[in-house]
Simulated assay, not measured.
Amino acid sequence: MSKTAFLFPGQGSQAVGMGKALAEAFPAARAVFAEVDDALGQKLSTLMFEGPEDQLTLTANAQPALMAHSLAVIRVLEAEKGLDLSASVAFVAGHSLGEYSALAAAGALSISDTAKLLRIRGDAMQAAVPVGKGAMAALLGAEWDLATEIAEIAATDTGLICDVANDNGGGQVVLSGDKAAVDRACEIAKEKGVKRAIPLPVSAPFHSTLMAPAASAMEAALATATIRAPKVPVVANVTAGPVSDPEAIRRNLVLQVCGSVRWRESMVWLGGQGVTRFVECGSGKVLTGIAKRLVAGSEAINIGTPEDVAEYTA
């Protein structure tokens, strides 16, 4: 029997106007945006709907904004389409901050707590490394083993940090660390025949060991957070496997700050469990494209607008 997994996007998928049509069409969406606004003491929804883009792109705003859009989609599907996550979805998974969205969707975290945790996470990640000191770059045409080798050589050559941050599959692996080390990795990548090495427009070296101060901040924040067992298993970024135990979830979210997002392995694992339908909830279609590439014969759709909701069938 075919299984469905719900996916939740990460940073980079935000865009001015996100969630606006959903809020105009559905009370359930408006309720989510109001809850997030109240939790943060900020009209984040106005920033999402109207911009300015440079403010929305700030890590501390982009992270809760993406979660808010994703959870608005979930609540609208529940209200309008009778979605029962535990009955119709086998697994949930989210890319980086999207793991928090997945946990909220599965009932492990409240929306308010998730918004507050993501604000802390965004602020802590931004503060961990001075602007300009860190960098990230995508290697296109490289798989995990080659990217790891390149990162290790760059770190040795420079005496600085260069880590594998994201394994997105389909020959796209992202490196993260000190700017000089990442720049050196891009040079090495070209020498080793990697198709392209593209510096990413990010404000900090996410998912590298330079994020250790942010991991400490999240350990403190998560220690007092209420985490319940999710209604469906969450595939964790750091293990690429399912987790349902609240204490394991807490540990994974701390490790995730500095650890690699093992997205390729997560998608391959889901395919191995019989998942053939992927539903990306929220902004953008990045995860939809990755799922189609990594799980042969799968169907992948995105739901972010009222039109998407109208077309959705469980």
Rank of each mutant, 00 (worst) to 15 (best):
D54T: 09
I290C: 00
S86K: 13
R119P: 11
R251H: 07
L85K: 05
V238M: 06
V164A: 07
T288C: 10
I120R: 15
E299I: 01
D38T: 11
E149L: 05
T148H: 11
V173L: 06
E143M: 07
A217E: 15
F278G: 02
L85W: 04
G41F: 08
T158D: 14
G284Q: 07
I161A: 11
A128H: 12
A215E: 13
A34E: 12
I303C: 03
S216M: 14
V32H: 04
T239A: 07
S176E: 07
R75E: 15
P213S: 12
E280W: 04
I198A: 09
D308K: 06
H207W: 10
Y312W: 15
A223P: 09
R277E: 00
A87G: 03
I120A: 14
V275T: 02
G98N: 05
P27V: 00
I301W: 04
G259Q: 11
D84R: 11
S244E: 07
E191Q: 15
E35A: 14
W144Q: 03
R75D: 09
C258I: 11
K133V: 08
A105E: 04
L77A: 06
T276V: 03
K3I: 00
I198Q: 15
I74P: 01
D163W: 06
D167F: 08
V173D: 05
V131E: 13
W269C: 02
M136S: 08
L294D: 01
L85G: 03
S266D: 05
T276D: 01
T46Q: 08
L40M: 03
A21E: 15
V257Y: 14
Q126M: 07
E265L: 02
Q273D: 03
G98E: 08
A28W: 11
G284L: 04
A79C: 02
N168E: 13
G159I: 10
D163P: 09
S70T: 07
L160K: 15
L103G: 08
A155G: 15
E35F: 06
S96K: 00
S70G: 06
V36M: 01
M67G: 03
P64F: 12
E53V: 06
G159E: 12
Q256V: 04
S88M: 02
T276Q: 00
E99A: 01
A21W: 08
A314N: 02
F278Q: 01
A154D: 10
L222H: 11
V234N: 13
A39I: 05
V243H: 07
W144H: 02
M218N: 09
E24K: 09
R30G: 05
A142L: 01
F26Y: 15
Q14K: 15
M67V: 05
V182H: 14
T59D: 10
P233Y: 03
G41E: 10
S244G: 05
V295T: 00
A248D: 09
V164E: 14
G274E: 03
R277Q: 01
P201T: 05
A181D: 15
N61K: 10
G289Y: 04
A68V: 02
S86G: 12
M18C: 00
V254R: 10
